[in-house]
Amino acid sequence: MNEFIIDGRPVPFVEGQTVAAALVAAGRVAWRTTRVRHRPRGVFCGIGVCFDCLVTIDGAGGRRACLVPARQGMNVTTGETVTTGETAGTTTTVTTVTTDTTEEGDHE
């Protein structure tokens, strides 16, 4: 069976599903904790618009779980994803910075 790893635990998926679809199929509706109120979040828009579903995949932070196809052995972590949105007038720069959270444990 196909599996990827999220926070050290295996999640089965059908080839062709996104990371978010596999998580929802496995009964998980939340996998991220918000920065301000520390609330759980998962998939909301399902098409890459809302950024609720953010995860770190194979070390790359700020990835939308609803867009990335699941792959065998992929390593997904749900630690804190830091974003700095610098706004100057109407110009918006979005920078993605990832913190390695392996030592802080997960947020389940």
């Binding site: 059908v14 062709g16 599903q17 996104t18 978010a20 679809a21 596999a22 929802v24 199929a25 509706v29 939340a30 609330r39 759980p40 979040r41 998962g42 998939v43 909301f44 828009c45 399902g46 098409i47 809302c50 609803c66």
Partner: peptide, 23 residues
């Protein structure tokens, strides 16, 4: 509306049509 398990209707449809998943 920010609780997990609340989705957009398009999101429900995208999971269904794209991944065969019922949320």
């Amino acid at each position: 509306w920010d609780l997990p398990g609340v989705l957009t209707i398009g999101g429900l449809q995208a999971l269904l049509k794209g991944g065969g998943v019922t949320a």
